[in-house]
Amino acid sequence: MSTNDHSKDVNSKNQVSRVLCPQVPPLCAPHYSDTGPPVVWSSLVKDSYVRHPPSAFVHDPEHWHGHKTDYLVKWTEQNLLEKQLHKLLKEMEGKGVSK
């Protein structure tokens, strides 16, 4: 039997064969319902965040950057100011500017 004979034989019977296609699930994600308690998320950023604005910073000259100013620091600052003042006064005297 040739291929032509076979096609004539199938057409003569008038039978339609059925092609089965596999079922394709829908593309959307399935709905899951969790019956357990809700998960509470916490993070360092969320825990550190302050919802109200902080109060105004009060500058304390005795305490800055965690260091306490003692007598030696105050003396050094005053000494630097005095040296700068004397230097400016000598420059003014050298230029002939009267007080």
Rank of each mutant, 00 (worst) to 15 (best):
W41T: 11
M1Q: 10
L89V: 07
F57V: 08
N4P: 01
V45R: 10
K95W: 04
K99G: 06
P37T: 08
A29N: 15
E91Y: 00
H52P: 14
D60K: 08
L81F: 05
Q78K: 06
S7T: 15
K13R: 13
E91W: 00
K8C: 12
Q23F: 12
K87Q: 04
K90T: 02
Y71C: 07
K99M: 11
K46W: 13
K90F: 00
K74S: 12
S33G: 03
L72Y: 11
Q84N: 11
S7K: 08
R18Q: 12
V40I: 09
P38I: 00
T69A: 15
M92E: 03
Q78I: 01
G36H: 00
Q78L: 14
Q84W: 02
L20T: 00
P25T: 02
P37S: 08
V19N: 07
Y71R: 08
H67E: 09
N79W: 00
E93G: 07
P38M: 00
E77Q: 14
K46Y: 09
C28R: 11
P25K: 12
D60W: 13
T76V: 13
S33L: 02
V58Q: 10
P37V: 01
S42W: 08
D60E: 04
G94P: 06
H6N: 14
H52A: 04
V97M: 03
A29C: 12
